[in-house]
């Protein structure tokens, strides 16, 4: 039995005076891959942002590797081994591909990690001098994932990794992420796209800031009722 890597305990998060998360709890075990599903504005992104203190929770606790990281400044969360691939990619448009990959701060061999990332995404290597803002949508998503992988994170947070991409690119990104999973990186993926369940073993469904379902990916795949009720579509 593997230990719990990320433990989110009953967090309440606000945007200004708007109460967004109403006591969200979830656990991610070491080496596990977990999906956080839900409709738009259900609280997925806010949960991710709360974990790394981009919007720190007002109540509740977050533990990473057994240490309390609630409200720990974002750059220190990163240095503990949590990496973010944000919603909407948010690559640095005015920097080249290679410069984007030089931004993450970590202790370790960068050249080795660069090589590893370029093995996953050879097209980024071919365009490494190009300005990131001029890449296609799919390439930008690959760059956002590559950038998050550079520090060789313990926990990879993926927020909508397949949003607005063609089925071909989605397939490509799933293959890469599955390889990364196999290499032992723990993944928490937030998505409203049912396809992304394929990336996970365990699934949480969030609705209006509350966790309303928790189970294995198979359970969710079988239960079309739950899919329809909380995600609005069924596979």
């Amino acid at each position: 039995m593997s230990s719990i890597l990320l433990n989110v305990k009953n967090i309440h998060t606000y945007y200004g005076s708007t109460h967004v998360l109403h006591g969200v709890s979830l656990q991610v075990k070491e080496g596990e891959s977990v999906a956080l599903m839900g409709r738009n504005s259900a609280g997925k992104t806010t949960t991710i942002r709360s974990i790394i203190s981009l919007t720190p929770p007002k109540e509740g606790k977050i533990y990473f590797k057994g240490k309390d990281i609630t409200c720990l400044p974002s750059h220190l969360c990163a240095r503990m081994g949590i990496s973010l691939c944000p919603q909407g990619r948010r690559i640095f448009p005015g920097l080249s591909v290679i410069q984007n990959l030089r931004v993450p701060v970590f202790s370790g061999n960068r050249d080795k990690n660069l090589q590893r990332v370029f093995k996953f995404f050879p097209e980024l290597f071919e365009k490494n001098k190009q300005l990131a803002g001029t890449l296609s949508g799919g390439e930008q998503q690959m760059l956002a994932i590559a950038r998050a992988l550079i520090p060789n994170p313990k926990l990879l947070l993926l927020d909508e990794p397949t949003e607005g991409l063609s089925p071909l690119i989605v397939k490509r990104i799933h293959e890469t992420l599955n390889e990364i999973r196999k290499m032992g990186t723990t993944i928490l993926v937030a998505s409203c796209n049912l396809i992304d369940i394929a990336l996970a073993e365990k699934v949480y469904i969030i609705e209006k800031g509350k966790i309303v379902f928790q189970g294995t990916a198979e359970e969710l795949n079988r239960s079309h009722d739950i899919q329809r009720k909380y995600l609005g579509v069924a596979l």
């Binding site: 790394i52 981009l54 400044p73 974002s74 750059h75 969360c77 990163a78 240095r79 990496s83 973010l84 944000p86 948010r90 640095f92 448009p93 005015g94 920097l95 410069q99 984007n100 030089r102 931004v103 993450p104 701060v105 970590f106 950038r147 998050a148 520090p151």
Partner: peptide, 25 residues
């Protein structure tokens, strides 16, 4: 444009949140 410190500075200017989330102080 060529040193890590400088590039991280430009990254902070272009998207502060994401640069922070990537460990930039």
């Amino acid at each position: 444009h060529k040193t890590d410190l400088g590039i991280r500075g430009l990254a902070l200017i272009q998207d502060r949140e994401i640069a922070l989330a990537l460990g930039v102080n």
